[in-house]
Amino acid sequence: MSAREDIMARIASALHDAPETPVVPREYRRSSNMSAEQRLEQLVDRLQDYKANVFVTPAEEASAKLAELLAGSTSIVVPHGLPQDWLSKLTDDAGMPAIEVDSPERRLTVAELDALDAVVTAAATAVSETGTIMLDGSADQGRRIISLVPDRHIVLLRASDIVEVLPEAIARLEATRPQTWISGPSATSDIELERVEGVHGPRTLDVIILT
C-alpha cells in the first residue's frame, strides 16, 4: 500500500463512528455598516498604529505626492501595470530617481532589486478594521518579490477599494492568485513579546490613500 492509501485507510478507520457534520453558524459580521469616510478614518488609524506612514491624497495629486516622498531616492522599481499618470511627475522632473520596470519580458533579479531604494505598487483591496492591505499579483502590483526585497514599500490604494471587515475582502479576492496581506511594516514580538518594527521585510511602509 502506498503511504497515501495507508493514511486514507487509517482516517476511514478513525472515523468508524461516522461523526456528523455540523451546520456552520455564520452569525458573525460579513458586511460593513460604516460609511466610506468612517472606513477611511479607521484604516488610517490602524495603519498608523502599526507604524506605517499614511497620506490621504486626492487622486489627481497622486503623482505629486509620490514625487515628494521619493525626493532623494536614487532608484525605484515599479510593476509594469502601474498607472502611468502616477509616475508622471517622476519621469518629467529632473533629479528624480531612476525607474526600473519589472515585467514578464524583463524580470529583475534579486541582486538588482536589492540595490534599489524603494518599490511602488498599487493594491487590490484593504480591510479597515484590521489595517490590512492585500496585494494579489495583478499587473499594477507585480510579482511578490518586488514588494519584498527593497527596504521601502510605497503603496497607492484607491479609497474606493477599502472595505471594513475581512469577509468583504475575501469575497473580492481570487484565492488562487499569489497573495500577500500586509498589516504594517515588518515587525517582531519575539523578544519579551515587545513589538518592534523592521526586520526582514521592508522596514518602511508608506501608504498613499487616493480619494
Partner: peptide, 10 residues
C-alpha cells in the same frame, strides 16, 4: 488585529 504578513500560494 492582524499579523504583519500573510502569504497565500496555490
Amino acid at each position: 488585529r492582524m499579523n504583519p504578513y500573510t502569504s497565500l500560494w496555490t
